[in-house]
């Protein structure tokens, strides 16, 4: 009997939480005597700053954080979340399946004891602000007090656009926003809805400036030590859960937008010209930050692939 703990670092009633529950169900149906999976929802065990290390040390068997959480240990991964680089989930899929791109990044992870199992979807990041004037063009960000997650891809983007960037802890953000300590935030739709921040920052724009996703991973030593038959069953269950995850994320974010509109928020769409202005404004980062992270050649390849989906 193998007992494994999976950490779902957000709420259970999200698509990610339900994907973990599905994975557990599938595994325990197929390997009733061999494997039990405990899914720990929320941050009672480990938080964003500690879960990767807990996985590496074997205290956890499965994690699924956003890309940024890995970037302390694997800085190159930040390239996948450069602004406006990945236009859609399909682009993410092709990049991650490319042996020179996703494959090379995954090899880095394996070298440090982490076995990547797949990619789950989070959503496109949308900027929303308090007051009555929405953020529609890059100039609207100038002087705006905006909170972003720690990570150069986020911070450098808004610094480039002239915003007053802060990375205060997520726990402080709803209060800080309500009180006016900050003016704007930029999470994905389901996080917007769950945190109720649309009640305060009512002008939300579908900037979709980063398509955020999760990397599901396991402890490599534990995984390699499993009975091959068990491992294959786990792999198959993971593939099924992943398929379900991809099918349901768009719906989750659509529902979240509906909740926000019903709750009094206004959601603005970008015109093609406005979107173009955003891409032009942040593109310099592809050269500076992107090249610094992975080099010219890899960056060129990344742009070549993602261009197909633009």
């Amino acid at each position: 009997q193998t007992k494994a703990t999976a950490l779902n670092d957000i709420q259970q009633n999200t698509v990610k939480g339900q994907t973990w529950d599905l994975f557990k169900k599938l595994v325990e149906e197929r390997l009733p005597d061999e494997v039990t999976i405990e899914v720990s929802h929320g941050e009672a065990l480990y938080d964003q700053k500690t879960m990767v290390q807990a996985l590496q040390l074997g205290a956890l068997q499965f994690i699924s954080p956003v890309v940024g959480v890995y970037s302390g240990t694997f800085p190159k991964l930040s390239v996948l979340v450069l602004p406006y680089l990945m236009p859609s989930p399909e682009a993410i899929k092709e990049v991650m399946e490319d042996p020179e791109l996703g494959g090379a990044l995954f090899d880095d992870m394996r070298a440090k004891g982490i076995e990547p199992l797949g990619v789950w979807l989070n959503g496109p990041r949308d900027i929303g602000r308090t007051g009555s004037k929405p953020v529609l063009v890059p100039e609207d960000v100038k002087g705006l007090k905006i909170r972003v997650p720690p990570g150069r891809n986020y911070v450098d983007t808004f610094k480039l656009l002239g915003a007053n960037v802060t990375t205060m802890s997520w726990g402080e953000v709803p209060t800080a926003l309500r009180q006016g300590v900050i003016d704007a935030v930029e999470p994905v739709p389901h996080a917007w809805a769950a945190s109720h921040m649309y009640e305060t920052a009512k002008q939300i724009t579908r900037t979709e400036y980063i398509w955020d996703f999760y990397i599901v991973a396991t402890n490599k030593a534990w995984w390699d030590g499993l009975d091959p038959k068990v491992r294959d069953t786990l792999k198959a269950a993971m593939a099924e859960a992943t398929k379900w995850n991809w099918e349901n994320t768009a719906e989750e974010n659509r529902e979240a937008r509906a909740t926000m509109t019903a709750g009094g928020a206004t959601i603005h769409e970008l015109t093609p010209e406005q979107r173009k202005a955003w891409v032009t404004a942040v593109k310099p980062l592809w050269d500076t930050l992107g090249t610094e992270l992975v080099g010219k050649d890899v960056m060129a390849k990344l742009i070549e692939i993602t261009d197909k989906y633009r």
């Binding site: 929320g42 769950a194 109720h196 305060t200």
Partner: peptide, 8 residues
């Protein structure tokens, strides 16, 4: 935060 209840 944990229960998705409005903080205000």
């Amino acid at each position: 935060f944990v229960t998705e209840t409005s903080i205000p």
